[in-house]
Amino acid sequence: MALPVQKNNRYTYAEYLTWFEDKRWELLDGVAYNIAAPSRRHQEVVGELFYQIRSYLDDKPCRVYAAPFDVRLREPEQEDEQITHVVQPDILVVCDESKLDEKGCLGSPDLIIEVISPTSISLDYVKKLALYEKYKVKEYWIVHPIDQTVMVFYLGDDRQYGKPGIFTEDSQLKSRIFADLEIDLQQVFASP
């Protein structure tokens, strides 16, 4: 694997844009992470979640996107090129169209979904959880395809994530930010 970055360096969005297009990268606090190609099972779960959410949003103003799709999280007054947080969630929903541009999303999506894989566990459960809370992502779902569970973190009135809701394959996942959105997890985790 040819890496365009060196270990222990910090990078910006401007540098990120110059890297090889045949690899997927994320920046978390300026640290570059190469994203491995997802497994077939991962893609099946992402596909079904995307389908159910897209169907729900059909007549609504919000938009749903799947990776690869850059989400740039920046500090106030920070120029686009200086951004040090660029993520590619498996699925995201954006309801404020002013956050969307030709490069992706600039600012926090309303909903982010990460389907974990063996190589992404610590990023999804620790680093991204803290990052999404800091940037006020209203809902963050961590989907575990092997255990067939979903942890849903909700941004509380105190602007922090509390204890997550935990949903299993035999339950209906209900969103708090989309009052009538229910995800059929039995369908999401169904084996082909």
Rank of each mutant, 00 (worst) to 15 (best):
A2E: 02
L3G: 07
N8V: 03
N9A: 01
N9E: 00
T12N: 10
Y13F: 10
A14W: 08
T18S: 06
F20W: 11
D22A: 06
D22I: 09
W25V: 04
L28I: 15
V31P: 01
Y33K: 07
N34W: 10
A37N: 10
S39E: 10
R40F: 13
G47R: 13
G47D: 05
L49Y: 03
Q52W: 08
R54L: 13
Y56A: 05
L57A: 09
L57I: 11
L57M: 09
K60W: 12
Y65D: 07
Y65W: 10
F69E: 09
F69M: 12
V71Y: 02
R72M: 10
L73S: 04
E75C: 11
E75S: 13
E75W: 09
P76L: 07
P76T: 06
E79C: 07
E81N: 12
Q82T: 10
I83R: 09
I83C: 12
T84I: 13
H85S: 11
V86Q: 03
V86I: 14
V87F: 00
I91C: 02
V94A: 05
S98F: 08
S98P: 06
L100E: 13
L100K: 12
D101G: 11
D101N: 15
E102G: 10
G104Y: 05
L106P: 04
S108W: 01
I112N: 01
V115Y: 03
V115I: 13
T119L: 13
S120H: 07
S122P: 07
S122F: 12
S122G: 13
L123A: 11
V126T: 13
A130N: 15
V137C: 05
E139C: 01
W141T: 03
D147P: 06
Q148W: 02
G156R: 01
Q160R: 15
G165A: 09
S171M: 06
Q172A: 12
S175A: 15
S175Y: 05
R176H: 15
A179H: 14
D180C: 14
D180P: 08
L181A: 04
L185I: 06
Q186S: 14
Q187N: 15
V188I: 10
F189T: 02
